[in-house]
């Protein structure tokens, strides 16, 4: 920033108005999908859904459906699936309400990706689910559930598709036959591992590496070894 900064009101106005940055193509596709979805509803003369209380499983299913719609409309194009982009999703704000506990399982939330459920930690460890979001990278849906405990929070993402992308680097710790890879991405600690062939990515704020690793590798019936 070697140029002289703007001083006058007119210069500030000129500077701000000169910005012509475009919205990302991905956002355009999402808006187009919303409009297409709206047109579909209108042409079918369906009543708009009443503002019922959505169960999170339903909301996630709807979001996943929307993601599929976006992908199909855009010919499968989407942001690149990189470790960086996936981790960034786990650190963004939720766009959907928090998933509730699965009424049929004491250790799972009522939210899953192709049968791989997000864990329920609130009663045991005090980590409550606070929200969720669904994005897509390279045509794959990435579902993220956010958890918080006090001022700590973390994002837990599961990438759809059993043919998981490969993640390298970091320190690998094997627990019960599953390798857990801990590494730093842009200054944030991240754990990656596979569950039923699905890539899972977890990153947090104010959470120690040990806690991240313990939560990632936790199984029903265990204490949290953080």
């Amino acid at each position: 920033m070697s140029e002289r900064p703007p001083h006058t009101e007119a210069e500030i106005v000129e500077l701000v108005r000169s910005i012509d940055v475009q919205a990302p193509p991905e956002l355009h596709r999402r808006i187009d999908a919303l409009i297409a979805e709206h047109d579909g509803r209108s042409s079918a003369r369906k009543r708009p859904p009443a503002p019922l209380r959505w169960g999170l499983a339903g909301a996630l299913a709807l979001a996943a459906l929307a993601a599929v719609l976006v992908v199909s409309l855009s010919g499968g194009g989407s942001s690149a699936l990189t470790l960086h982009s996936t981790v960034a999703l786990t650190l963004r704000a939720p766009t959907m309400s928090a998933p509730a506990q699965n009424p049929h399982s004491a250790t799972e939330l009522a939210a899953d990706v192709e049968g791989v459920a997000f864990p329920y930690w609130e009663d045991r460890f005090g980590w409550r689910s606070t929200g969720a979001r669904v994005d897509h990278l390279d045509g794959r849906a990435v579902t993220t559930v956010f958890y918080a405990r006090g001022r700590q929070w973390l994002g837990y993402a599961i990438v759809a598709g059993a043919s998981a992308p490969h993640v390298g680097g970091g320190t690998v710790t094997e627990r019960e036959g599953t390798p857990y890879r801990l590494q730093r991405v842009d200054g944030t600690s991240v754990v990656t591992w596979l569950r039923d062939g699905h890539l899972c990515v977890m990153a947090g704020h104010g959470v120690s590496d040990a806690t991240l690793m313990a939560l990632a590798s936790w199984h029903e019936g265990e204490a949290l070894n953080a």
Binding site: L83, H84, S85, G168
Partner: peptide, 11 residues
């Protein structure tokens, strides 16, 4: 860092 891509295949 953002340029580091995943590659397909089992880890």
């Amino acid at each position: 860092a953002s340029g580091v891509m995943f590659s397909e295949g089992a880890p």
